[in-house]
Amino acid sequence: MQSTLLRIGTRGSQLALAQAHETRDRLMAAHGLPEDAFEIVVVKTSGDQIQDRPLSEVGGKGLFTKEIEDMLLDGSLDLAVHSSKDMPTVLPAGLDITAFLPREDVRDAFISPKAKTLRDLPHGAVVGSSSLRRQAMVKRLRPDIDVVMYRGNVQTRLRKLDEGVVDATLLAHAGLKRLGLGDVVTSVIEADDFVPAVGQGAICLESRLDDEKTNGLLSAINDPETRVRLEAERAFLGVLDGTCRTPIGGLATVDGDTLTLKGVILKPDGSQMHEVEHSGSVQDAEAIGLAAGEELKSKAGPNFLTS
């Protein structure tokens, strides 16, 4: 007999654990449950183990979810907590994103001991980032800057910055805030200048489609606005490229009953960029995302994603 009510799967980084604890705490508050009704299970994913090369070379986003999803499917876990931006657009059969927690700040944070903003960095400065989107956007704004691949968890990247390995780095503002590290931020880059990654700042909860008990509990902590925004963003990404091999940004915002999605796609070297913006009813979130993705694909041309 299962000794705990819910087994929550997560990666083992401090940020992933903070997200798992937030999920547990919200479930405790929503249902009046004690802490010992939950077990947080740490799973080491392929993405955590590969540190010597860009993930885009070895499989992309699914590397942060596969082992956790395998445990969901075999019944070892009841739900999984993910950063939405790590989620592939196509999920394994039998699994679904059941709920989203309220979205945090979507913006990127600039961190540097040498300049207040990206534009203020000295000529030839070195910026570290593992994100193809951030790398391309940095190169577009500052072609003179050297951008290097920069893997590791948040604490590792900050330590490398302190050690002078790079002159600056960019991280998700949401993750820094969740870790209580907001004070390390030199400046925050507005989303109009740096369109965020699809799902940035949003925590999603994945479970088995046929697990009515778990899904019923999760429905109480689902944030409807975050869900509708992510429906549009994930549909948009799915049209273009469901992996992390292409620099893509997408952000949906909601104002009353209107949803607006802004999307961009760039060449990895930042030399070309195409933009799109679509608006419509929140009830048509997925359709808006699909239309924006198709328009951007048309603008970029057939060879943009492969060349």
Rank of each mutant, 00 (worst) to 15 (best):
A285D: 08
R103Y: 07
L170T: 01
A30G: 05
L6Y: 06
G32M: 09
S76E: 07
G94I: 00
S307K: 13
V148D: 05
D193V: 12
A252L: 06
V166F: 07
V198P: 10
Q2M: 09
G94K: 02
P302G: 11
D193N: 14
G216Q: 04
S281M: 09
L121D: 09
V254P: 01
G175W: 09
L132G: 07
L17V: 13
A29Y: 05
K299Y: 10
G256Y: 06
A292F: 10
P196E: 09
V165R: 15
D105T: 02
E190N: 13
T246C: 12
S271C: 06
L251W: 09
L79K: 01
S207P: 03
E231G: 03
G94H: 02
R159E: 13
L170D: 04
L27T: 02
N215Y: 04
T89V: 12
T156S: 15
P92D: 10
D255V: 13
V195C: 08
H274G: 01
L205C: 03
G250C: 09
L179M: 14
I189S: 06
V42K: 10
R133M: 14
G201L: 08
I248E: 11
D52G: 04
I189P: 04
E163A: 13
S219M: 12
D210T: 08
D192Q: 08
